[in-house]
């Protein structure tokens, strides 16, 4: 489509100046007209990227049009435009680097509009030669749950539903079945004759949740972290049924976090605020660990029961534990290969 078709001219004529400016600012604005989108859908073998861009552009223009009619505020206008483009973006895994930075830019602008304060959303990639693993010392954990609080604050978990990724179970000495454990104790700890065992997402090497997702909204990254693309999830909760460790949480309603408590250092696949109707889970604090920091739970643990590190580094603490301690994993017989080991002194 080199010559502009009548349909395209008609659509452009309808656009308000701002939307037109936006289209012009696009690097390949030629693809973004509605007519091209339609043409691509109708008679070309569909190039997904182009078609989506076209649709997003057209839809955005439409939204801008409606909004221009309804509200004189150009801020609103911009927000609607951003939201439309967000709606029509790709699965994060399939995005090019420039598309990733574009969506991060949109998300940051939207967040700034909503919360009046700047957030930073990373898109850092897995480092080569890194595979994260975790070890939990059941003879050290005293059940204080400092890790739970740290996790909630770090990862912007919904305060309204009291969501928590980490659960600490109180188990009687001599027992090992979680079925007889108490997952919601509240009394002075450590209680006599009890030991404590924490669970969270185990970032299985062979994760059942990933296989079952119908839209590929969850996957295992190169460094072993199982992540969710919150904007791609359709909320069918099949992964929740497939997880043998209760590692996944669903946003049954729109999550609520007090503005002053929002952690503004975020990762696209990590702690950026979620929305209603999508799945979320522990990401080994991807926004921290991809920078070299320890996960919040490890940092918060007062007893040193939590050990995190690189399984591919033979000098790491996690490798020392695996080589020198008697370790076990939960439900190993299921073949999920969790990268989360329990051990005792």
């Amino acid at each position: 489509m080199t010559e502009s078709s009548p349909l395209r001219r008609w659509v452009q004529g309808l656009l308000n100046p701002e939307a037109r400016r936006h289209l012009a600012a696009e690097p390949d604005a030629d693809d973004t007209g509605f007519a091209e989108g339609a043409a691509a859908v109708l008679d070309k073998p569909l190039d997904r990227r182009q078609a989506l861009r076209a649709l997003a552009g057209a839809a955005g223009a439409g939204a801008a049009l409606v909004n221009a009619a309804c509200s004189p505020l150009s801020g609103r206008n911009e927000e609607a435009q951003l939201r439309w483009e967000e709606f029509f973006k790709k699965n994060y895994r399939l995005m090019t680097d420039s598309e990733r930075s574009a969506t991060v830019d949109r998300l940051e602008r939207l967040a700034a509009g909503e919360q009046k304060e700047k957030v930073h959303i990373q898109t850092s990639k897995p480092a080569a030669g890194v595979l994260f693993g975790y070890a939990f010392n059941i003879s050290k954990c005293k059940g204080y749950q400092d890790c739970v609080t740290a996790c909630i604050e770090e990862n912007n978990l919904d305060r309204k539903s009291n969501m928590q990724y980490i659960r600490i179970f109180e188990i009687e000495n001599g027992q090992s079945s979680l079925a007889s454990a108490n997952g919601s104790y509240y009394h002075k700890v450590p209680a006599d004759g009890q030991y404590y065992l924490g669970t969270q997402c185990f970032h299985c090497e062979n994760p059942p949740c990933v296989s079952v997702c119908p839209v590929g909204a969850t996957w295992k990254e190169e460094d072993g972290i199982v992540v969710v693309d919150y904007d791609w999830c359709i909320g069918c909760r099949y992964c929740q049924a497939a997880c043998p460790y209760f590692g996944r949480r669903f946003n049954w309603s729109a999550p609520e976090i007090p503005a002053e408590e929002i952690n503004r250092e975020q990762h696209y696949l990590g702690n950026r605020p979620r929305k209603k109707g999508v799945m979320e889970k522990c990401t080994f604090c991807i926004q921290r660990t991809r920078q070299g920091k320890q996960p919040a739970c490890v940092e918060a643990c007062p007893t040193g029961a939590r050990i995190f590190g690189n399984l591919l580094d033979p000098n790491s603490e996690i490798r020392y534990v695996l080589a020198n301690k008697k370790v076990f994993r939960l439900k190993e017989e299921l073949g999920t290969e969790p990268k989360f080991w329990y051990f005792s002194d």
């Binding site: 030669g129 890194v130 062979n206 920078q291 690189n310």
Partner: peptide
């Protein structure tokens, strides 16, 4: 099914962790 031990054995490269 892949085992963690196999993944570890298959990646004997030099780790390139982030600068911390």
């Amino acid at each position: 099914h892949p085992k963690v031990s196999e993944t570890i054995a298959a990646h004997q490269g030099i780790p390139q962790p982030p600068d911390s």
